[in-house]
Amino acid sequence: MSAFFEIKNLEAGYGNSKVLFDVSLKIAEGEFVTLMGRNGMGKSTTIRSIMGILKPTAGEIYHDGTRIDGLASHKIAKRGIGFVPEGRHIFPNLSVRENLLMAQIKRGSANEWDVDSVFDFFPRLAERMSNGGDQLSGGEQQMLAIGRALMTNPYLLILDEATEGLAPIIRDEIWDQLGKLKAMGVSILIVDKELDALSELADHHFIIEKGEIVWQGDNQALMSNPAIHEKFLGV
């Protein structure tokens, strides 16, 4: 498969503190890719750099053949890169429905996401459609954050710590839904620590250590190599 999203030798940091030294990764259309690593290794910094929230100091990011590093954050999202940030970040002063409606980007293709299809995908949200964002449970907020990203009809969905802090039963529900998104052909880049769940869904894995991609491979290569788990993931 050819890459429709690619990062080449990305470097980034905060002020004088450099966090990413050499991050390169590729995602093919419809692929489910993970970015794993221990805390503080640069996973979220990579995601923030992709989304234009943090300006890279070196390297290149391409989407569909177009260089996107240096673009304003909202322009990157408009290109079709949906983002579910760590901590959910839904808007507490808007209702569930308003949170979704506000995010809608129509791309003129068939089977686009709209409020009804998001409610079909997450029936719990339909039950809470008039509730304020701050009246939802953590799991419901995560569903809303994913639903809101889907409303932008993304070609690539990026999730940062999508299941962190959620009850196991809710986590399972989120994983099930991500599996359905994969089956629909949505490309996904996910940062998470749940190796078991990721191994069932992911096509390809990247492991980041001290700001560099130190290992990459397919699912079989990762699962058949416990030394990698121990060395880089602390599992």
């Binding site: 304003a72 909202h74 808007l94 506000m102 809608q104 980007i105």
Partner: peptide
């Protein structure tokens, strides 16, 4: 309206808005 929702949301966190393609 959607415009009003964006204004209300901007009072909460502007970074979150950019992540869904809104300036």
């Amino acid at each position: 309206s959607r415009f009003g929702n964006v204004i209300r949301a901007s009072s909460e966190n502007e970074e979150r808005l950019t992540a869904i393609g809104i300036s």
